[in-house]
Design a protein around this nucleic acid. Structure first.
Length: 335
DNA sequence: AATGTGACCAACCGCCTTTGT
DNA sequence: AACAAAGGCGGTTGGTCACAT
């Protein structure tokens, strides 16, 4: 049982501070400093716990606190720092003179998080979002699905793998749109290849994805091939054209099938880019820096391994785009 | 004018880490 | 090394205010 909280003494005041209390605290600290927060309240004549005094001082009364609106520069810095540090508010505050961790945290939660979401950026990963409607839609799939001959577990695993595939496809689509500055419906794959914007690794990977996608839409559990009624919120990925382009390319240019194209282009087996299947769910890493942090903390961590039989979509909460980007060579691609 | 709703933010809570004995 | 005290941190809560209905 951990130690008792410092504020468990009965009769100590809680809640908002009065101007009189603020004055007492400030005068005491100016005269004597704050070497022991535990003893400070009694010495200063305050009916508060030391922790409450410390918070009041560090978050509000400290003379070097800058109050008022965050500037554009501060905003940008917070976003940059968050992308590197995650929810390490105190570390961020150390780099923003005059701002407290609490202030930064509040500003993040009330303004910046929403701003990034509106810009289509995931505030946790700082990467383009996979469409959240997709997740919502898939969530609706479970009750809507006719399970047929599959066990519930198999079905859940299949849906999970399909969901991962759809997310990958959508990310790839977004990446290509950014690269080519045009929708995938106008994708000029040959142009991309010709300009060397798209490397062999990427092409091999796309080919794999396209085949997986084809398998998905023709699967007996898919919206096209079965009795499942997909929720309307499930987005149209608009990838058919990409699929056609890639497969046409592989046929017309090289007259090879997918695996051979990958091998031809890369000198490596297409299996190097193997994607999750219904029987091998993706191994997912923590989704955010703080997940990693939490996982490192003793006792608190819960294993987030994929093969949960009770929550088939739980891994989605942790879907790590690093996994996708490394498969795709996205970092190299950008550089 | 009364009520509902959402945004904002100060303060609290519980846990972890650091420090002292 | 083991334990307890104190400090620190991040998540969450709840009060207040502005605005909409």
């Amino acid at each position: 049982m951990g130690r008792s909280p410092c504020c468990d003494e009965v009769g100590l005041k809680k809640g908002p501070w009065t101007p009189e209390e603020d004055k007492k605290l400030m005068e005491f600290i100016h005269k004597h400093g704050h070497e022991s927060w535990r003893r400070l309240p009694k010495l200063a004549g305050l009916n508060r716990c030391g922790k409450s005094c410390r918070l009041r001082w560090t978050n509000y009364l400290r003379p070097d606190i800058k109050r008022g609106k965050f500037s554009q520069e501060e905003e940008k810095l917070i976003i940059d720092l968050h992308s590197v540090l995650g929810n390490k508010w105190s570390a961020m505050a150390a780099r923003l003179p005059g701002r407290t961790d609490n202030e930064i945290k509040n500003y993040w939660n009330t303004h910046l998080r929403k701003k990034l979401l509106q810009m289509g950026i995931d505030p946790v990963t700082h990467r383009p979002r996979t469409d959240l409607n997709l997740l919502g839609g898939l969530h609706d799939l479970l009750p809507a699905a006719n399970f047929g001959n599959l066990s519930h577990l198999d079905h859940a695993l299949k849906l999970q793998a399909d969901a991962a595939l759809l997310a990958r496809l959508q990310l790839v689509q977004n990446l290509i749109q950014v690269l080519t500055n045009s929708p995938t419906s106008n994708l000029d794959l040959m142009g991309l290849l010709g300009s060397a914007s798209l490397g062999n690794h990427q092409l091999s990977y796309l080919l794999q994805l396209s085949r997986q996608y084809e398998g998905l839409i023709n699967s007996p559990l898919s919206p096209h091939g079965s009795n499942i009624q997909l929720p309307s919120s499930l987005p149209n990925l608009g990838l058919q054209n990409l699929l056609n382009n890639i497969q046409a390319y592989s046929k017309s240019s090289l007259s090879l099938d997918g695996g051979e194209v990958a091998a031809h282009l890369d000198g490596v087996s297409a299996n190097s880019y193997s994607l999750p299947t219904s029987s091998s769910a993706p191994s997912l890493a923590p989704a955010s820096p703080e997940d990693t942090h939490i996982d490192q903390m003793q006792g608190r961590a819960t294993s987030r391994n994929v093969s949960s039989t009770t929550a088939p979509f739980a891994p989605w909460e942790d879907l790590n785009l690093d996994d996708i980007s490394s498969d795709f060579g996205w970092k190299d691609f950008l550089e």
